[in-house]
Design a protein around this nucleic acid. Structure first.
Lengths: 112, 112
DNA sequence: TTTTTATACCTAAATTATTTAGGTATGACG
DNA sequence: CGTCATACCTAAATAATTTAGGTATAAAAA
């Protein structure tokens, strides 16, 4: 489905937001959390998520901590101070996006 | 600015919506209308718009009528019947996008 | 016990939507 | 005469995603 084409560009925002709510999370956990919270409506692909995490880390917005559960690796990510600011920024951008779309699409829509 | 990265994927929706409101419009007019309605917040690039119009036409969502004002060409686009349905569909998708983002981002946001 | 499913990480190639950066030409204004 | 607004267009580069793999451990099912 190309049903989710609107999400293009939203992944970073989602990741930053979840890490704002949960202090630290690992990649696989994020995919599951998103599926759970959205009741299966949105599925984050690993092929999109892992590169995104690496990108955000490279930009200094996330920091990593590698843990082990048994023999299995987990890479926990958390917001840096800069990431915290960027999270708020991303939220503001989402609101701006909304208000702009509203202007373009009103009066047909009820953004509730 | 990558400020508008969230708009990626929204262009078709915007075009369909404007044509739902205005019966027929030509490309340049759309760029101006968007600038006007959003008070300069969003600027549709011609390099994005014209290919999008051609794509939507190829999909059978728009039909063209070529007019002339003096010697200058205008290609007016209007929704086909299929385009009208797809317009409503796109609107629904936008609302779905919103409700999904709300689930992910609540309780921090007030989508008003 | 063997196979499958879930967990957990990853990358490369293809796809898609955009921006950037042009090009062509007419008409209006100074 | 030159510049700016109008009006169309495309090609190359950029960016974010999907698709389609790969590796390996742990748990559940057959």
């Amino acid at each position: 489905m190309d049903k989710w084409k609107l999400y293009k560009g939203s992944l970073d925002t989602i990741v930053l937001q979840l890490l704002g709510q949960n202090d630290r999370m690992y990649g696989y956990e994020i995919t599951q959390k998103v599926k759970e919270v959205t009741e299966g409506e949105l599925e984050i692909k690993e092929g999109a998520l892992y590169p995104a995490l690496h990108r955000l880390e490279a930009k200094g917005l996330l920091e990593v901590e590698v843990d082990h559960v048994g023999n299995r690796m987990r890479k926990y990510y958390k917001l840096t101070e800069q990431g915290l600011r960027e999270k708020d920024n991303a939220l503001q951008q989402l609101e701006d996006y909304l208000s702009t779309m509203k202007k373009l699409i009103d009066p047909n829509i009820s953004f509730g």
